[in-house]
């Protein structure tokens, strides 16, 4: 089976700004692929190139097996798109927009439309100018999800939605996932969302893919967080290879450890006598911080272990991580 999206060495400049700088991205057919990056990383530009709206300066892009620029209007029968910043026609009602976009794509599934309207709790009779940001987002989501298409391109689709609606969105995407015949490219800077939904993900920074793979595969590259309550002093722990950010709080030691150095470190802990131990894989947020912390950016300590704190931004990072981050 061919890939739904296959992008290699994509370059796009706007004047002096290099929005994409050799981006590679592969989305396999049938998967939900997370496209993760901070604001301004080049996510929307990539989607616009995939839609044939913007032309790349260099590199190749294939969408559903065809050139997105040359195949532009015809290819769009097979996909639906939710832009990052949804604006509606002020004098058209939400229902009219949903129907118009659906019909342009070749038809609206009435039952599905009604179902989605109910689940997203959206009044389709309001005029475009009367909707709040979240409701405009819902209009675009319903229009996209009610269409029977192969590929969904979603650009930060939950921005402006309240947590309840985010949950509805996740449920709907999970249903799509179970059906298995739809591919979803989900751009986001919300870690929990990608963590909850995506089979594979690509992390993009400054127009380049810095990491791509399954969530499990990425974790493999990263450290494990360990919190231990020790009977005695753990001398020499700091000197072991692969141990980072060692600190003591209330008599407990907390540190990060490279996965391949886990064995010797656990041995040393056992020697000291373990009364309690918490270890867990890094949250996506931690991965994220590692990749998006730029040298020179304001570094501050952030609390680890908060996979659900979706609001964290790239500018907060542990001071100790800057060395790896600027690789």
């Amino acid at each position: 089976m061919s890939d739904a999206v296959s992008v290699a060495g994509l370059v796009k400049t706007f004047g002096a700004t290099r929005a994409l700088d050799g981006l590679d991205l592969v989305v396999r057919t049938g998967e939900v692929h997370g496209f993760l990056g901070p604001n301004g990383a080049g996510k929307s530009t990539t989607l616009r190139i995939l839609l044939g709206l913007t032309r790349a300066d260099a590199g190749t892009a294939l969408l559903l097996g065809a050139d997105p620029w040359a195949g532009a209007p015809e290819l769009h029968r097979r996909l639906a798109y939710v832009p990052g910043d949804v604006t509606l026609w002020p004098n058209l009602s939400g229902g009219e927009v949903i129907d118009l976009l659906g019909r342009l794509r070749g038809g609206v599934d009435r039952r599905r439309r009604a179902d989605l309207l109910e689940r997203f709790d959206l009044d389709p009779r309001k005029k475009g100018r009367a909707y709040s940001k979240g409701n405009r987002q819902k209009v675009a989501l319903v229009a996209a999800l009610a269409s029977d298409v192969e590929l969904l391109l979603l650009d930060e689709p939950t921005s402006g939605l309240d947590p309840l609606m985010e949950e509805v969105f996740r449920d709907v995407i999970r249903e799509e996932q179970r059906r298995g015949d739809r591919t979803v490219l989900l751009s986001s800077h919300i870690l929990a969302e990608v963590e909850a939904l995506c089979d594979r993900l690509t992390i993009i920074r400054d127009g380049r893919a810095v990491e791509t793979g399954t969530l499990a595969g990425l974790r493999h590259l990263t450290r494990t967080f360990v919190e231990a309550d020790l009977a005695g002093p753990a001398d020499g722990l700091a000197g072991l290879p692969g141990v980072h950010d060692l600190r003591t709080e209330n008599g407990r030691v907390l540190f990060d450890v490279d996965t391949d150095a886990l064995g010797p470190v656990l041995g040393r802990l056992a020697t000291a006598g373990v009364r309690g131990l918490v270890s867990r894989p890094p949250t996506l947020e931690e991965l994220f911080l590692r990749h998006y912390h730029r040298t020179g950016a304001t570094a501050s300590t952030t609390s680890t272990g908060s996979a659900t704190s979706t609001g964290s931004t790239a500018s907060t990072a542990s001071a100790g991580e800057s060395a790896e981050a600027s690789r």
Partner: peptide, 26 residues
């Protein structure tokens, strides 16, 4: 005050030209 609009689009609203007509009509 802006009134509520229709919950579904009229059958004719299915082409870019039909949308342009809606936008330019007034």
């Amino acid at each position: 005050q802006a009134r509520l609009g229709p919950a579904t689009a009229a059958p004719g609203l299915r082409t870019p030209l039909a949308l342009a007509w809606r936008l330019h009509r007034g």
